[in-house]
Design a protein around this nucleic acid. Structure first.
Lengths: 143, 143
DNA sequence: TATAATTGCTCTAGTCACTATAGGTTCAAG
DNA sequence: CTTGAACCTATAGTGACTAGAGCAATTATA
């Protein structure tokens, strides 16, 4: 049996995490990922803990958290005994953000649909799309 | 009666359109707004047509259209004899985009809500938020 | 009319979260 | 030992602005 720790090159880490190679280097540069050890030739070599963290980062990004929020997650993960209120706060804040974005987009969707409905498929002169775009008062909703 | 055309400084235009001064200059720079005439001292002076266009741009931006899409609107508006199908196409494309963005955000919202629901308000160590972040398999939906 | 306050000017650099490119080096397979 | 893929650094580019420095012009007040 192999007792040695599994090592990964940056390319392997990329394939395993679905994070692009330049992005991994970028995360290292901004301090999200620890600097890994290097081979004699200067190439990065990672262990599975780096993979775990990278997956966590990728997942949080996919969930829409900002880099700063992730930085905070990582910081909090280093204090397992602390209460998780801060964690809650960040998540709640993000949820509010997402909810607002959805509302905005719903309004936009309604307006786009009405734009399409109102277009008589004639020439631009008669097309209300430009009209709607030019005149905010045509809007049914605030934005 | 004042027969002279109303003139606006960039600051007045900004207040009337709710577009910030540097943004107006930026729009001019990228060719969305025509270069206005200048006073002897070199300051920009606008007429109401610029205000109309700026409002149109601001409105389209608020609706989520990209600068490129707006450029396209302006181009099409300059050819009123052309069929408005192109415009329709842009709008339709945008509508699809918005619909997809909404769907994605709805999934995200559900995920965040379940994360918060599962939080036991104890310590970070036991908090499921970090757990969920670290393990994609906790997710009910794709993202 | 003098001065002060405000607004304007250009130019450059910064934001976010990457992505792309150039030009060179190291590694692993055959 | 050679070849070619994968790696390295450094710089610049993306979109749509935003911020700052260091001046100049305009407008309001005394």
């Amino acid at each position: 049996m192999n007792e040695k720790l599994q090592e990964y090159s940056i390319g392997q880490l990329s394939r395993l995490s679905d994070v692009k190679v330049p992005t991994i280097r970028y995360y290292e540069q901004i301090g999200l990922l620890e600097e890994p050890y290097r081979t004699e030739g200067g190439q990065r070599r990672y262990f599975s803990d780096a993979l775990d963290r990278l997956r966590m980062i990728a997942h949080a990004r996919a969930l829409g958290f900002s880099i700063d929020a992730i930085r905070e997650f990582i910081r909090l993960a280093g204090h397992p005994e602390a209460p998780c209120e801060d964690l809650d706060q960040i998540t709640m804040h993000h949820l509010n953000d997402v909810t607002q974005r959805i509302q905005k987009l719903e309004r936009l969707k309604a307006e786009l649909q009405s734009m399409l409905k109102n277009c008589q498929h004639g020439t631009i002169e008669k097309c209300r799309i430009l009209e709607v775009l030019s005149d905010h008062n045509h809007c049914q909703t605030e934005h």
